[in-house]
Simulated assay, not measured.
Amino acid sequence: MQLFSDPKARPGLAQKLVVTAVAVIFFGQLTLYLTSRRWLNGTEKFLRTPTNILLLGVDAPNYNEQGELERPRTDTMLFLAVRPEQGRAALFSIPRDSLIEIPGVGMERLNMAHVHGGYELTKSLVEKIMEMPVDRYLMVDFQSFGEIVDLVGGVEVTVDKRMLYEDRSAGFRIDLQPGRQKLTGNQALGFVRFRRDALGDITRTRRQQQFLAALAQKLQEKETFLRLLGRLPDLIRIGRDYVQTDLQFSELLGLYLFFKDLDLGENLQTWTLPGEFSGPYWRLHPREIEHMTQAYR
């Protein structure tokens, strides 16, 4: 079954983007207070330079069949193309089940690249898929998601259906009633992770888009900014414990300045890489990807 091959189709983002957005805002705000002119010079350079950032969200580490601790899988992969001088950006969601040849392994899901070769292998495969370089990366741990939502005071969304699911081995339970409501961190985690739908992850990404839009609206409120400012120790702890990146402070500040006034509806395009289901895998369509990404090359 072929889905999202039309470049005009705009399915949702993944849950780690929520964490990433808050992390970027946090570091941007902190840098506004702490940076010197030296940092601001780097920010000005960033705001003149096209930059591609790979956003990765990782699961908890797993033990393999030999009882050895493996690197975590990349539950979410997002390719952010920032074009400051054009006043626009694009976010390309790369399905985690995308089928690709991993050197030394064979045909496998893309999210296994991090297990076999860490960030560098993941980066090289994403560059092959996108036919664009990755300039920077930002990796976040899924554990931070609920904490971030609670820090902003919860997020109001419309739950589209009854959601009931329990994974006793992982100690995780989803129990949501349909309707408009404010979700706590734990409830929001269930909302964006629920995948008992006919299209599984595809429907889930649409809910994540819905949640991201609601969170973005919440972050625009002055009360939310003041709340976060009053919780700086918690934000610093989350950034220290859950975020890895090679972005410099000046570049994080540049991201904050670029996105804080960006019209997200007009100047931020969001896409899922086109392809079709082939059993449990997502078989990518290279020519359609090339057409979709052409304007950002």
Score class of each variant (00 low, 15 high):
T158N: 07
T158L: 06
V159E: 14
V159M: 13
V159G: 14
D160H: 08
D160F: 00
K161P: 04
K161E: 15
R162C: 05
R162Y: 11
R162F: 12
M163V: 09
Y165C: 09
Y165R: 07
Y165G: 05
Y165D: 05
Y165A: 12
E166N: 09
E166M: 06
E166T: 14
D167P: 10
D167N: 14
D167S: 08
R168S: 15
R168M: 13
R168T: 10
R168H: 11
S169V: 13
S169D: 15
A170G: 05
A170L: 11
G171M: 01
G171C: 00
F172L: 15
I174H: 08
D175W: 08
D175E: 15
D175T: 07
L176G: 11
Q177R: 13
Q177I: 12
P178T: 01
P178C: 03
R180Q: 14
Q181R: 13
Q181W: 01
Q181L: 03
Q181T: 10
Q181I: 04
K182P: 07
K182S: 09
L183G: 11
L183Q: 07
L183K: 08
T184P: 12
T184N: 03
T184E: 00
G185Q: 00
G185E: 01
N186E: 14
N186V: 09
Q187T: 01
Q187I: 01
Q187R: 01
Q187N: 00
Q187Y: 00
A188I: 05
L189Y: 02
L189A: 04
L189G: 01
G190M: 03
G190F: 04
F191L: 08
F191P: 11
F191M: 09
V192A: 06
V192C: 02
V192H: 09
V192F: 06
R196C: 03
R196T: 03
D197K: 02
D197I: 01
D197T: 13
A198W: 00
